[in-house]
Design a protein around this nucleic acid. Structure first.
Lengths: 156, 156
DNA sequence: ACACTCTAATGGTCAAAGAAAGTCGAAGTA
DNA sequence: TACTTCGACTTTCTTTGACCATTAGAGTGT
């Protein structure tokens, strides 16, 4: 069996033990598996990316850590669909507005949250000297990032 | 746990015990935690800055002291300050996080809204091929746009 | 009393060392 | 060809120590 697979299983077992969140020390884990510390990063990048339904957060320096949060659960299917299928690399301002109001209609987000989201991808927010293509690429990314966050909170 | 975190908690506990103000002796505190006195300055700079919602004032010489005050501002005061003075043309990701968590602490936004905002300006959202400078400029704009939306709703 | 100086007691700054984690290209493997 | 693994180098956060700045009060001379 591959090292990466072992590390993946190890982390997933930890996640199954109750909480949907786990905190670890990169160096300790690498030591445990007798591999290069950067191997852990590889596993995180290939098996615990947002597309796989996980968020990771970390801190360097003394007392540093890596935290992994599982965000995909039954209730978030629709959101994950949006993130993975509906939204591609690009989204116009209008498409954003349409999506956001659908989410509001469906009561996935509150009205206040909907306006916050709209503000984040508004023309005003993106009024920097960039091509429309780049702006729409940014919109897609900003939307995905926010939707992932909503999916994470909706897991209960 | 990190030393800095311990010192931070210690000070915050003192602040929670009633008054929104605390006075301490740098050397005594350093002695108590068995660390270099300058460590206290580090904690103040990284955890009790104005962005974190605190002001510090101090005096040297015999009978010197350090006073830490938690700043209390109304929601709209804080929003105005942020939009008009604090946020200029550029904001780093960390600065965004700090400002957002202050708004949450001050109950200007809900926890859900705070994570939404953080998601909008996260590195994940802005992982497009742009210079850091441009990204930080975008962060400033996105933040302002969102904050103005919040300010608008708080009036109605 | 008064003014002046000296000194001990504080706190401040900054650069360097230490302690994690991140990146990325090269080499290995299936 | 695509996926893994490694390790040299980078970045970020923490901790310390040497040196600097300020202040209150004691001592001294008039």
């Amino acid at each position: 069996m591959r090292l990466s697979d072992s590390i993946e299983s190890f982390i997933k077992e930890m996640l199954d033990d109750g909480s949907a969140e786990v905190e670890l020390k990169r160096n300790e884990l690498a030591e445990y598996f007798r591999c290069a510390p950067s191997q852990i990063n590889y596993v995180l990048a290939t098996r615990f990316s947002p597309d796989h339904g996980y968020l990771t957060e970390s801190r360097r320096g003394g007392g540093g850590y890596i935290r992994i949060v599982r965000v995909v659960q039954s209730g978030s299917q629709r959101l994950m669909y949006l993130v993975n299928e509906r939204i591609g690399d690009s989204l116009t301002g209008e498409e954003c507005i349409r999506l956001i109001s659908q989410l509001k209609e469906a009561e996935v987000v509150t009205a206040d949250e909907a306006s916050l989201m709209a503000a984040a991808v508004s023309a005003r927010a993106l009024s920097v000297p960039l091509t429309d293509e780049l702006k729409n690429a940014m919109r897609a990314r900003i939307m995905k990032s926010m939707l992932m966050t909503i999916a994470a909170r909706n897991k209960g």
